[in-house]
Every structure is written in structure tokens, then in C-alpha cells.
């Protein structure tokens, strides 16, 4: 295993300033995740799971403490570099799929590819990934609204993978799916991990967390 962890948090604190008073969402969290790990983050609602995932996903930066993603301290980054980080290093899979409604399944997957490579996909990579997650070329011509939840999540996984990210972040990936479909999605994710990809997943379902090789429990913004 790689000597330097792909994700490293050192005393990360996140405070939200609200009119009703400050809310400490993360309180001195320190942890590290090695390349190739499959980590589940669990905890009751309000425990800071989503905040932690947003920090690792470079959508937000810590109030204090250091957060290294792939060796870079994201606390020191501006919006432009954070955005580049999200494009190149991180693949995000959401509970609500979050596909772009205006684009077809194929275009949804191709979109980050175009943003990164500044050209249309001519290598067949988009089709290859779509096939890998079980979306054939007929389905890929449809808009998200014409696909089932399971199909949408497959497209979302393909989109997260298209730029070969170092880290895959999954926010309740099966939360909007029935058990059977959820299991299919988890099988795909598990397969990706066995190929050596780092997965970090937020869930409150112990059965789903069972897929992970390590579970981090968060309570009131601290690692329990």
C-alpha cells in the first residue's frame, strides 16, 4: 500500500455561522484513508457525515485544520482549484443521482470528459464505461427522466468514473433505490474497489456499510 494516504484530515473543524448561533459540524476530526480502501462513514443524522463528505469532495473547505487530498491541502485552495480538483481527482455519486436533465445519458457521462479534455470523446471511453455499468447504447440515448432510478444511478456512476478519479465519493448511493436495485449498485461499487479504486461512502444502512472494509463512526462531529 502507498505510504502517503490519499485522504488525510488533521484536526479538521467546520463551524457554520447561523443567525441562531454557531453550529460545530465537525469538531477536530483526524483520520487518514489509504489508496484502495473502501471506507464507510456512518452516524446518525446531524452527526456531520455529509459535511465531512463535502470537505473531502472539495465542495467546501475546513474552518480550521488541514485536509490533504492526494497530497494537496484543499484549505489553501481558491474556487478555481477546488473546481479542478472536483473535475480531475474526485468522482461524486449522489443519493438523488443528480444527472443533468437537459442532457442524454451519454452526454451526461461525456460532459466531465469534455470539461477535462476540451474535446469530444473519440476514444469510445464513454460507451465503454456505460457498458461496464450496464447501460447499453439504446438506453444511453435517453434523457435521465426517461430512465429508472437504478439506471440513473448507473449513469451517475459512469459519469463519476469517466475522468479516472483517484477517489470515488458516494453519498447514500442506494438511498433512493429499492433493495434489489441497491444491491446491484453496491455490486458495481464493490467491483470498482476490487479493481483498486478508493471508495468513501456515507450511509446509515448497516447492511450497505457491510460492503466496506472499514467503518468510521461519527457522533456529534467527532470520530467515535
Amino acid at each position: 500500500m502507498n505510504s502517503s494516504p490519499v485522504v488525510e484530515l488533521a484536526d479538521v473543524t467546520k463551524v457554520y455561522h447561523l443567525p441562531s448561533g454557531d453550529v460545530v459540524a465537525l469538531d477536530g476530526v483526524s483520520l487518514s484513508i489509504e489508496e484502495g480502501e473502501f471506507v464507510a462513514i456512518m452516524g446518525p443524522s446531524g452527526s456531520g457525515k455529509s459535511t465531512l463528505l463535502n470537505q473531502i469532495g472539495s465542495l467546501d473547505v475546513p474552518s480550521s485544520g488541514d485536509l490533504f487530498i492526494d497530497g494537496k491541502n484543499i484549505g489553501e485552495m481558491g474556487d478555481r482549484h477546488l473546481t479542478e480538483m472536483r473535475l480531475n481527482t474526485i468522482g461524486y455519486i449522489f443519493q438523488k443521482f443528480n444527472l443533468i436533465p437537459l442532457l442524454t445519458a451519454f452526454e451526461n457521462v461525456e460532459y466531465p470528459y469534455i470539461l477535462k479534455h476540451r474535446k469530444k470523446d473519440e476514444s469510445g471511453r464513454v460507451n465503454h464505461i456505460l457498458e461496464m455499468v450496464g447501460i447499453d447504447s439504446d438506453l444511453s440515448r435517453h434523457r435521465p427522466s426517461e430512465l429508472s432510478g437504478g439506471q440513473q444511478q448507473r449513469v451517475a456512476i459512469a459519469r463519476a468514473l469517466v475522468n479516472e478519479p483517484k477517489i470515488l465519493l458516494c453519498d447514500e448511493p442506494t438511498g433512493n433505490l429499492d433493495t434489489k436495485t441497491g444491491r446491484h449498485i453496491m455490486d458495481i461499487l464493490d467491483g470498482l474497489n476490487s479493481e483498486g479504486r478508493t471508495l468513501i461512502m456515507v450511509t446509515h444502512d448497516p447492511a450497505i456499510a457491510g460492503y466496506a472494509s472499514r467503518t468510521i463512526n461519527l457522533v456529534d462531529g467527532r470520530v467515535a
Binding site: 469532495g57 465542495l59 474556487d79 478555481r80 473546481t83 479542478e84 472536483r86 473535475l87 480531475n88 461524486y92 443528480n98 444527472l99 443533468i100 436533465p101 437537459l102 460532459y111 466531465p112 470539461l115 477535462k116 459519469r159 475522468n163
Partner: peptide
């Protein structure tokens, strides 16, 4: 707004 959030979260720059 939501679509903008998706675009931004998967790596679309502000100016785009």
C-alpha cells in the same frame, strides 16, 4: 439552481 449545483459539483468552473 439544482442543475447549477450539479454542474459546479462535478467540476464546472464559475465562468463556464
Amino acid at each position: 439552481i439544482r442543475e447549477i449545483g450539479i454542474l459546479r459539483s462535478i467540476g464546472t468552473q464559475k465562468n463556464e
